[in-house]
């Protein structure tokens, strides 16, 4: 299947113009910045703190904005127009993911600058964050597709905001409550463990398993999202 960059760019540009006038989006961006400013007052923030902010950015910007953007397209009946155009599902979803991705990148960079986080190996960390982005974009798209309105979307995203934003805090309880063992395999937790190993100077041989788990989350949610999108194309 060939992708039309012109179509992807057109959807991205449209979203960029549209979102620049959207107050909901501006208010969401404030959340991770607020945490970054707050934690920058601590002397030598730990990896946990840096990644609390990065994970919060991923779920509150990447997933939440994506979810809101898709839900709004549904609410205003504009998604149907895109679906009836010659644009493919990949062109539409890629185009619609770029704004969330750009906002995520900018926010993470600003937050890292505020908290003074400089990874030991930037390339490794960049790869892990990009893989995480795939998962969070898929999550946002999926939740946007199953909701009917922006208000509904902003409610349905809440449990995920807590789970993936702050869920890694539960890791300390996994020995006590075995039911929480799944927390160890969540993409946010994996990202933190990955970052620890990067800071310890470990190489790819010690890192790939974390990347694989994050990638598996991304692939699973991607398959689910495309399936739901295909269903939404039909007006059954």
């Amino acid at each position: 299947m060939s992708l039309s960059l012109k179509r992807i760019y057109a959807i991205f540009l449209k979203d960029l113009k549209d979102l620049s006038k959207n107050l909901y989006v501006s208010s969401i961006v404030i959340l991770p910045l607020f945490f970054a400013i707050m934690y920058s007052r601590i002397d030598q923030p730990t990896i946990e703190i840096h990644y609390l902010i990065i994970n919060l950015t991923l779920v509150s910007i990447t997933a939440t904005i994506q979810c809101a953007v898709i839900a709004e397209e549904k609410e205003k009946n504009t998604l149907r127009g895109l679906m009836l155009s010659p644009a493919t599902v990949l062109e539409i979803l890629t185009g619609k993911s770029f704004v969330s991705l750009v906002l995520t990148a900018v926010t993470i960079l600003v937050c890292m600058n505020i908290t003074g986080y400089m990874p030991e190996n930037t390339v490794f960390v960049l790869i892990a964050i990009l893989l995480s982005c795939v998962f969070y974009l898929g999550l946002g798209t999926l939740l946007g597709l199953v909701t009917r309105t922006v208000v509904e979307a902003s409610v349905i995203i809440m449990p995920f905001l807590f789970l993936f934003g702050f869920g890694s805090q539960l890791q300390g309880l996994t020995d006590q409550y075995s039911i929480l063992a799944f927390v160890n395999y969540m993409p946010n937790t994996q990202l933190i463990e990955f970052a620890h190993k990067v800071e310890d100077g470990l190489g790819f041989a010690d890192l790939w398993s974390h990347l694989l788990i994050i990638l598996a989350w991304g692939v699973a949610i991607g398959i689910l999202t495309i399936g739901v999108y295909r269903k939404r194309e039909m007006d059954e």
Binding site: K21, N77, R80
Partner: peptide, 9 residues
């Protein structure tokens, strides 16, 4: 009747 337009554009 369910065609829509981008309101902010």
């Amino acid at each position: 009747d369910n065609s829509g337009l981008y309101q902010r554009l």
